[in-house]
C-alpha cells in the first residue's frame, strides 16, 4: 500500500472530464456553432446593418456586429463552462458513478479543481469557436490579448465553479435547466451583450452595473476592441475574487459531503 501523492488523481479526473465532452461534439460543439452562426447572421448582418455603429465610453464607435461579438463569446463560454460542470456532477450523482471518485483517496480540493478546470476548458474552447465564427462575418482583431486571455479564463473558471455548486444542489434535471434558462441567460442578455449599458436611461443604467455580467462582457470586449464601459483592471480583480470565493465554496461543499453523502 502506498499513500497517494502528487497530482495523478487530479490529472486523471480532468482528462476524464475533458474526454467526456470532446468525444461528443454533437452535444457540446455543434449546438453553439449553429446558434452562433444564427446570432451573427441575424443580429450581426441583417439587424446590424440597420443598427449601425455603437459608441462606447472611450474610443471610436464600432460596427454593431463587432460590438456583439465579445458578448456572444462570453455567453458561449460561460454557458458551456457552467453546463459542463453542473451536468457532469449531477449526472454522476444521478447514476451514482461519482462514487468512483468519492471513494478514492484524492483530496476533495483536487476533485473540485478537476471539475472546474475541465468546465473552464470547454468554456474557452466554445468561446474560441464563437470568435472564429465571428471572424467569418466581420473583421475582428485582438486589441488587448492579455486582457482577453485573462477575462476569458476568469469568466470560464467562475461559471465552472458556479456549475459545481448547482451540480451539487440540484435534485432533478429541471433544476439544471432552470438555473441556465432563468438565471444565467437573463443576466447575460441584460449584461450588455446586445446593447451598450450607457445608452440605458436611469435607473436601468445604474441597476445594470449591479449585474456581474456587465463586467464580464465589457472585460472581454476590452480584450477584443480595446474599449470598455467599465474599468477593466477593477473588473478583473473583482471577478478573480469572486471566482476564488465560489471555488472555495465548492471545496467546502465537497468536504461537507453536500449532495454527495448521507
Amino acid at each position: 500500500m502506498s499513500l497517494v501523492s502528487g497530482l495523478t488523481g487530479f490529472k486523471t479526473l480532468t482528462k476524464r472530464e475533458i474526454l467526456r465532452f470532446l468525444r461528443r461534439p454533437r452535444n457540446t460543439f455543434v449546438p453553439p456553432f449553429v446558434t452562433n452562426v444564427l446570432y451573427f447572421a441575424v443580429f450581426g448582418v441583417i439587424l446590424g446593418d440597420r443598427v449601425g455603429e455603437i459608441s462606447l465610453a472611450d474610443g471610436d464607435p464600432v460596427p454593431y456586429i463587432l460590438f456583439i461579438l465579445p458578448g456572444l463569446v462570453v455567453l458561449g463560454a460561460i454557458s458551456n463552462a457552467f453546463e459542463n460542470a453542473s451536468f457532469s456532477i449531477f449526472h454522476g450523482r444521478w447514476n451514482e458513478y461519482i462514487e468512483e471518485t468519492l471513494t478514492s483517496p484524492m483530496p476533495y480540493s483536487r476533485m473540485v479543481a478537476a471539475y472546474i478546470v475541465a468546465g473552464a476548458t470547454r468554456g474557452i474552447l466554445v468561446g474560441s469557436l464563437i470568435a472564429v465564427i465571428g471572424a467569418f462575418f466581420t473583421s475582428v482583431g485582438v486589441a488587448r490579448p492579455l486582457y482577453l486571455l485573462a477575462f476569458g479564463l476568469v469568466v470560464s473558471l467562475l461559471f465552472a465553479s458556479f456549475g459545481v455548486v448547482v451540480g451539487l444542489w440540484a435534485d432533478d434535471w429541471d433544476n439544471l435547466t432552470m438555473m441556465n434558462q432563468f438565471i444565467v441567460r437573463p443576466l447575460v442578455f441584460f449584461g450588455g451583450v446586445f446593447y451598450a449599458v450607457r445608452e440605458l436611461p436611469s435607473p436601468y443604467q445604474e441597476l445594470s452595473f449591479l449585474n456581474p455580467m456587465v463586467y464580464m462582457v465589457n472585460g472581454v470586449r476590452y480584450g477584443f476592441l480595446g474599449v470598455s464601459e467599465v474599468d477593466p483592471v477593477w473588473s478583473l480583480a473583482v471577478l478573480t475574487g469572486l471566482t476564488a470565493a465560489v471555488a472555495g465554496l465548492d471545496v467546502a461543499l465537497f468536504e461537507r459531503g453536500y449532495g454527495l453523502t448521507d
Binding site: 488523481g9 467526456r20 468512483e100
Partner: peptide, 16 residues
C-alpha cells in the same frame, strides 16, 4: 460514458 478498460484506468488514476 467510457469503455470498461478506460473506466478501470480512471479508477486507478484516482488512486494515484
Amino acid at each position: 460514458f467510457f469503455p470498461i478498460r478506460e473506466v478501470l484506468q480512471h479508477k486507478a488514476g484516482y488512486h494515484g
